[in-house]
Design a protein around this nucleic acid. Structure first.
Lengths: 223, 223
DNA sequence: AACGAACCTGAATCACCTGTCAGGTTTGGA
DNA sequence: TCCAAACCTGACAGGTGATTCAGGTTCGTT
């Protein structure tokens, strides 16, 4: 129940069959919730607004989710799964670790640009559902740690780095760069960018490459 | 009015004199708001809860702040000023840029450990007051950029780095490392740490040092 | 064509909140 | 000692929105 690494379906339908029609209604509600919450935030997002956007009656909501809190948690799980999928797909078949990192960030930024809901939902999770906040970050970091350790094994990145701390640092970089240069940026018509500015991306990658690359020693250090 | 870099006092008392007694009451309210909001979040934090904690009557609140939103904004401005002060004080009289960076982060983490409200308030700002969210991050980043540019001028850090992007990256690192290793961490008695684990701090600094240090070239690259 | 299961609906309940205001209290200077 | 300015108070008006529930609708199967 307090398990951080198992639960996938967050709803009131645990166990209940759900016909195709039911599945569709649940999906409509989840998508509506994603947009409404991204637009106006969790607290302003009333059940009525969500059900209206989904095109169903208000009572229907409670057939698929136990509470407003529940749909929020389902939303985090769903967006988290999707962003990780987007990152994994982008990293598919890359060579070096830095190349993989580059691809992973690319996937992350593309997803962020297309689903600002992720950011906004995660930020609100601080109080709405701290458990989901942790789950979100922890799941992403786990992938990073594994990749970094493997790369260290092959001598591709500085062996003096701590994989866990490094993973959190990388996440932090992606988070704030994404916020600043994707979510805050607007073109001259007030439209949000479709992807990260390549110059910014390269500047960020230079920083990351510096950070990960094994230093060619001049003076001596421990280990 | 939409100025991001000027307004300092956010309240309903603009212009009004305020005797010492008044100042004190306002301060009590602001401090109460800090704790209540940090504990239960903006939306759960009712005016009654804040005034009760401050030890004043409910109506008093509106003598000092126009609305719940206003006290929140005042809170961001206040915490932002204090964290920047804490960082600046720690950086006072440091030598190299990396040394300054180290000291700045140290000040930042100490402040974060002592005032978890900063994090929580800022996260809620996403919807409560986006303007304040930007103000908070922007003000901190500005200091970074200046420092980085100066350090580049003296050849202390990689001239290939973009100061602005680098500044946001550094902020991101501090933000997530602080969240993970300060706000989430508890000792065996369930108490939060007083400061960041030195091992984590060193691991983070190694990453940052790698990132900032001018690479000793082996292969050639463009400028 | 008919029946049960699965679905859908929205008015009503209930709990709680923000912001106002008319009236009381404290303070400090003359 | 007295008074006006500054402060303080909390009941109350005006609202909101999550959740329930009794009753209706649709679907798939036989």
């Amino acid at each position: 129940m307090t398990e951080l690494h198992e639960a996938e379906e967050v709803s009131s339908t645990a166990g209940r069959p759900l016909t195709r029609r039911g599945e569709q209604t649940r999906a409509k509600l989840l998508e509506a919730a994603e947009h409404v919450v991204a637009d106006i935030g969790y607290h302003e997002a009333s059940i009525v607004k969500i059900t209206e956007r989904a095109g169903v009656g208000m009572g229907t909501f409670y057939l698929y989710f136990d509470s407003k809190q529940t749909v929020f948690e389902a939303l985090v799980v769903d967006l988290n799964r999707r962003v990780r999928h987007s990152m994994a797909a982008a990293m598919e078949g890359t060579g070096s670790r830095v190349e993989a990192e580059r691809a992973g960030f690319s996937g992350f930024f593309r997803f962020t640009a297309q689903h600002p809901a992720l950011y906004r939902v995660v930020r609100e999770a601080e109080f709405v559902s701290p458990q989901m906040l942790r789950l979100h970050y922890t799941r992403i970091v786990e992938g990073y740690i594994a990749g970094l350790e493997a790369a260290q094994g092959v001598g591709e990145i500085d062996p003096g780095l701590d994989p866990e701390v490094t993973a959190w640092a990388l996440m932090g970089i992606g988070e704030l760069i994404g916020m600043r240069y994707l979510l805050w940026e607007r073109d001259s018509d007030g439209r949000p960018p479709v992807d990260l500015d390549p110059d910014v991306f390269e500047a960020m990658m230079r920083f990351i490459q510096n950070a990960l690359t094994p230093p060619r020693r001049a003076e001596s250090e421990e280990s």
